[in-house]
Amino acid sequence: MGLFSRRRDPESPAEPFQFTVDKVFVVPVRGVVCTGTVTSGTVRVGQAAKITLEDQSRSVTVSRIEAQGKKRSSAAAGEQAGLFLGGLTMADIPTIPGNDGSIKDGDALSGASVVSVF
């Protein structure tokens, strides 16, 4: 290895996290994104998690994280972020009455927790 070669630090292991949902959106082609705040720990892309929906828990995977308009590999406690969750679909978001009866309720999951699973 040369004097100026770059060595990547090994990824630190995933640690437990909790994320509180403010709003939920469906982004065409990318899927469902939950915006909110990391309330404890650090969330990383690829982490297994669960989200509690009304009366059941759903297994999900954090497939992408965005914070302050940029793609990130992690978000730590206190940060606001958007988590793209694999395993959560548009069908999981309740609808509200609208002109055509199919308007998704972005506030329906407000207060829901996404927590890490080990």
Rank of each mutant, 00 (worst) to 15 (best):
Gly2Thr: 12
Phe4Leu: 11
Arg6Ala: 12
Arg6His: 12
Arg8Trp: 05
Pro10Lys: 11
Glu11Leu: 11
Glu11Cys: 00
Ser12Ile: 08
Ala14Gln: 06
Glu15Cys: 06
Pro16Ser: 10
Pro16Cys: 00
Pro16Val: 01
Phe17Val: 03
Gln18Gly: 07
Phe19Asn: 02
Thr20Ala: 05
Thr20Ser: 09
Val21His: 05
Lys23Gln: 10
Val26Gln: 06
Arg30Phe: 07
Gly31Ala: 05
Val32His: 00
Val32Asp: 01
Val32Phe: 01
Cys34Arg: 00
Cys34Asp: 03
Thr35Met: 04
Thr35Asn: 09
Gly36Leu: 02
Val38Phe: 03
Thr42Asn: 03
Val43Gln: 00
Arg44Ile: 03
Val45Asp: 04
Val45His: 04
Gly46Met: 05
Gln47Leu: 00
Ala48Tyr: 03
Lys50Leu: 03
Lys50Cys: 05
Lys50Tyr: 01
Lys50Phe: 04
Ile51Cys: 06
Leu53Trp: 10
Leu53Ile: 15
Leu53Met: 13
Glu54His: 10
Glu54Pro: 01
Asp55Cys: 04
Asp55Pro: 02
Ser57Asn: 14
Ser57Asp: 15
Ser59Val: 06
Ser59Gly: 06
Ser59Asp: 15
Arg64Met: 07
Arg64Tyr: 03
Arg64Gly: 03
Ile65Ala: 04
Ala67Cys: 06
Ser73Thr: 13
Ser73Pro: 01
Ser73Leu: 13
Ser74Arg: 05
Ala75Tyr: 05
Ala75Asp: 09
Ala77Trp: 02
Ala77Asn: 05
Gln80Asp: 09
Leu83Tyr: 05
Leu85Ser: 06
Gly86Gln: 14
Gly87Cys: 11
Thr89Lys: 13
Ala91Met: 14
Pro94Gly: 06
Pro94Ser: 12
Ile96Asp: 09
Pro97Leu: 09
Pro97Ala: 15
Asn99Tyr: 10
Asn99Pro: 04
Asp100Ile: 09
Asp100Pro: 00
Gly101Ser: 05
Ser102Met: 10
Ser102Gly: 10
Ser102Thr: 12
Ile103Leu: 15
Lys104Glu: 06
Lys104Ala: 13
Asp107Ala: 15
Ala108Cys: 11
Ala108Phe: 07
Ala108Met: 07
Gly111Trp: 12
Val115Gln: 13
Val117Cys: 10
Val117Asp: 14
Val117Ser: 15
Phe118Thr: 13
